[in-house]
Amino acid sequence: MHMADALLSTSVGGAMCLASAGAIGYSVLQLKKEDVSEKKLPLMAVVGAFVFAAQMINFTIPGTGSSGHIGGGILLAGILGGPAALLTMAVILIVQSLFFADGGVLALGANIFNMGVIPCLVIYPLLFKPFLQKAMTSTRLTIISIISVVIGLQIGAFGVVLQTLASGITELPFATFALLMQPIHLAIGLMEGIVTASVFAFVYSVRPEIFANVLNGSSLGMNISLKKLVVAFAILTLVVGGGLSLMASEYPDGLEWSIEHIIGDTELEGNGTLHALSESIQGVTAFLPDYDFADGDGKGTSVAGIIGSILTFALAGAIGLLISLCKKKEKVTA
């Protein structure tokens, strides 16, 4: 689920960064308004570190022999509330990307959006909180935890699909990609949901007061019928998971084509042969790859490219060797 830098284009990455920065700014303001941020900070930090530690703990999935671990968003939101949970999730993702290479740095915006904003600022206030505010029992807590995690993960996974496709890095058709991602994340979501629910159930039975902030405070959902909301989310999930992919299969990689068209258009001229070739293969599209092996006059550049690449490698190796030799000498003389 963590997206890497290599899979995002600068524009998609930048746009997602802006969106997530906005959400983080909103959450900071919300916390300042609550005026409990000072007391809450250590709790947020420790619970954030807890999510890290808890992710190390695997559990055996019955019947499969494989193991899974917990996710974060809904678990954090249930304990800390939406805005605080988003900040904590953002920090977790930053630490993961900086120190563990789990998710890219430019991709942080996308990752924070998919795994933080969606569960903490969308699912939690619209679904989780109003459902429990109506009546708080351990059964309801279990049910809504599983539902929230599953829906959150489905939307998040769909976000990954959209962002990757919009970046134009993958050649996977939209439908195939979506059909791969959604079911996998349905299974993961169910597992994560069950674990989140069982953690909540345990905590609720031992210290029910921890869920006080879920029950207190204003709720967006109070004047909206909850049933309608659940139905709306269920429909949304269905549309996302199945409907769109079915529709898209009628127009295979429609998104890709349009993007390719926009990018390819500006480079149509001066590449006659390649253009004709790609046109004959692809029919209507303006698919015109910038292979840097074949830009301009074809073969000549490709040979130059290969020789040059070998030279660059050799140069890099030589510099590396030289620096390490110098360092060794320094150590010996010192």
């Binding site: 709790l43 930090a45 420790v46 619970v47 807890f50 808890a54 559990f59 917990i70 629910a197 345990f202």
Partner: peptide, 24 residues
């Protein structure tokens, strides 16, 4: 090696409670 699914709630929940006490 690892807790069963039926135990995981207690296990992780316990870690959570310990963390929250620590935060206090």
């Amino acid at each position: 090696k690892w807790p069963k699914l039926s135990e995981i709630g207690f296990f992780i929940g316990q870690l959570l409670l310990r963390s929250m006490d620590r935060a206090e």
